[in-house]
């Protein structure tokens, strides 16, 4: 409960005085920090005259971002398709599997220990096997992204479904709700904040998975571009690719946050993003 959090007092404070500064602070501070770092970086490269093979200046990277834009956009589209499909597959498999863990005892007994044990296997190590099985095309990347991303969705879904308050379940039972209705009216909506937590973690993991897949073997994508540029000692293009990748990942994360804020408007973390996270 929010009232019991030690930071409840600061919550009340920011709510009492919702000035423009207080509302912009969550965006302003990281932006300023980032700007500061970029300026320091630029100054460092200019002052030390470090080789641009080792560390290109931000201005060089920006120039490459512009000149190589068509290439970057093309590669981004490939990588985005890979991690979006992998993420989508994680959602489609992860949420029902989480529900089965909670509602079907045999499934829990049979699958849960293996599921947890499987997470100790380093996924990057099995990525080459996927490529051997499925070829160097998109399918292997999608499946690698899926294998890395689906676990937090399963676990967070199961946690959220289990956390439904018993008195709320009793209320709907005395209205005549059957097991499916208990799920639909209580357990599932109650689990949504957890599910979104899992989705956000999964979104970043899916990006990692797609890149790992491209590193192993690919002819397209941002990960492939990083490898190629690196081989040609075009460090500036490597950095430009990484920046593009970050923009993709962060953009997807914020898209999820937007959806979350719309879907669970009722939830504290959705209403007060600046203090309700974690």
């Amino acid at each position: 409960m929010s009232a019991e959090r030690p930071d409840a007092l600061t919550d009340a404070d920011t709510e009492a005085l919702p000035s423009a500064g207080a509302r912009l602070a969550p965006y302003l501070y990281p932006a300023l920090t980032l700007a500061g770092l970029v300026v320091a970086w630029e100054a460092f490269t200019k002052l030390t005259a470090v080789s641009r093979l080792l560390l290109p200046a931000p201005s060089d990277i920006a120039a490459t971002l512009v000149s190589a834009l068509p290439l970057l956009v093309h590669m981004s589209a490939i990588t985005a398709a890979e991690f979006l499909l992998g993420f989508g597959l994680s959602v489609v498999v992860g949420i029902p599997l989480g529900a089965l863990l909670v509602h079907a005892r045999p499934v829990e007994l049979a699958v849960y220990p293996l599921l947890v044990a499987s997470q100790t296997v380093p996924k990057a190590a099995i990525a080459p096997i996927f490529v051997v099985w499925l070829g160097a095309g998109m399918t292997s990347k999608v499946l690698i992204a899926f294998t890395i991303a689906f676990f937090p969705i399963v676990i967070d879904t199961a946690i959220g479904l289990r956390a439904a308050p018993p008195e709320v379940i009793n209320v709907v039972r005395s209205m005549g709700a059957n097991a499916f209705q208990v799920f639909w009216f209580v357990r599932f909506p109650n689990a949504l904040p957890n599910i979104f937590g899992g989705l956000k973690v999964a979104s970043t993991l899916a990006v990692v998975g797609a890149i790992v897949g491209e590193f192993v073997s690919a002819e397209k994508g941002l990960g492939y571009l990083v490898l190629v540029a690196n081989g040609e000692l075009n460090t500036t293009l490597v950095f430009a690719s990484v920046v593009t990748l970050s923009v993709l990942g962060v953009g997807f994360y914020f898209l999820l946050e937007l959806v979350e804020r719309f879907v669970i408007r009722w939830h504290v973390s959705a209403r007060r993003p600046e203090t309700g996270t974690m």
Binding site: E167, V168, N170, V172, G176, N190
Partner: peptide, 27 residues
């Protein structure tokens, strides 16, 4: 029956009106 539990047992994701109408929706 209508039951009022010791804890209010409202659904956090439903508005006040929708919480009252939960009774109607479930039935």
């Amino acid at each position: 029956v209508g039951v009022v539990f010791q804890q209010d047992a409202l659904l956090a994701w439903r508005s006040v009106l929708d919480n009252v109408l939960l009774q109607i929706d479930v039935r």
